[in-house]
Design a protein around this nucleic acid. Structure first.
Lengths: 196, 196
DNA sequence: CAAACTCGCTACATTGGTGTTGCAACTCAG
DNA sequence: CTGAGTTGCAACACCAATGTAGCGAGTTTG
């Protein structure tokens, strides 16, 4: 009977050993990457991508569902960290938008996973918090006249995320820097294809 | 041993009987809808959604893969029909863009499926043709100065599809008409959130 | 160094999705 | 109406993915 500490996905009772921590990260990163390309990917495929035996995945995560849960939590945590860094409440809104874009693009995690968890309860809170902070930034953009004052904020946020998704795909092809792509995203978002 | 005519996914050797045709459509539509929400959906779930026994699905489509194939072909056909209707080569480009948007939105099919088939050969041709016609329309938009002349056409097309995707999601929530949403898409695409 | 822990590996049980077959009841086309 | 074709249903074989368990070898921690 193994301790199976990690079944609590993140909320560890006692600290993980160094190697265990490494394995955990490797699995989460691999899962993130593999599942983005194929949502129906096997635990075996994930294990292979992580350079780990399949049984180890089961040791760390009680079930496939538990792994998904951990993935989402991990991703949300990374997201909030990115938002914190961009200081959307205090920095000049256009600057914050650029920083936020670059951060999102750097955290290469795909967003297809966001399609999975809206049915969950636990994360709903975190997601709402993230959405609210994004909406607040766009409110500031509207107030300062950077975008039309009567902009539908819900639509604005959705378009923002859609553009980020495309930018991330583009990154894989062109190899552009997050900063370049962030500029492209903000430019397209604010001024459309008509340009400045 | 049943005829299994439909295993040839569309390229029928002899015409289908009326009821068979109906079933076929029901399955394709149901699959389109169910798979959009859950790419790993069971054939059983698809059959249920189509109001059909699971074995019937197998009778019409040799395998799960064959069903996917048929889905893609069906969707591509609908797409080309929409493009034809919008006359992107002859109509005023902005008008064509609006028509195209409304058409795409009406053909409610989700685009998550587009993530599946880029690995295929047979469809690559059709997809390239569709992409080319879209690119041509955006070229005309650039030539007439509706969008910046130096716009990256590849980026433009991708953004266009991303906006369409969001518009389709929005339609499910707000119930807006395809025309209203098409206006929103073209406006956002050309002028961004800054408005006209 | 030594105890505690982790990993890879092998083997196995279980489950759920896939695909097949045959038959009786029904529906369509001519 | 009649024959050909189609469907639902039940029963079945098959397989791949999931999840479990134990052991020996290797790693970390104190």
């Amino acid at each position: 009977m193994q301790p199976c500490v990690a079944a609590y996905h993140g909320r560890v009772t006692r600290p993980l050993r160094a190697d265990s921590e490494r394995t955990m990260r490797a699995i989460l990163d691999a899962a993130n990457q593999v599942l983005a390309e194929n949502p129906a990917a096997t635990l075996q495929q994930i294990a292979d991508a992580a350079g780990v035996a399949r049984t180890t995945v089961h040791r760390r995560f009680a079930s496939r569902e538990a792994l998904m849960e951990a993935l989402v939590l991990d991703m949300l945590a990374q997201l909030e960290a990115v938002i914190d860094d961009s200081r959307p409440e205090t920095a000049p809104p256009l600057v914050a938008l650029h920083e936020l874009s670059a951060g999102y693009i750097t955290v290469k995690g795909r967003w297809r996973l966001t399609d999975v968890h809206p049915t969950e309860f636990e994360h709903g809170e975190a997601i709402e918090r993230i959405k609210a902070r994004n909406r607040a930034l766009f409110q500031r953009l509207a107030d300062t006249g950077t975008i039309a004052p009567d902009t539908d904020l819900e639509w604005a946020v959705r378009v923002f995320f859609a553009l980020l998704h495309e930018a991330i795909e583009r990154r894989a092809v062109t190899g552009n820097s997050p900063d370049t792509l962030a500029a492209l995203v903000t430019s397209t978002l604010v001024g459309g294809l008509r340009g400045v």
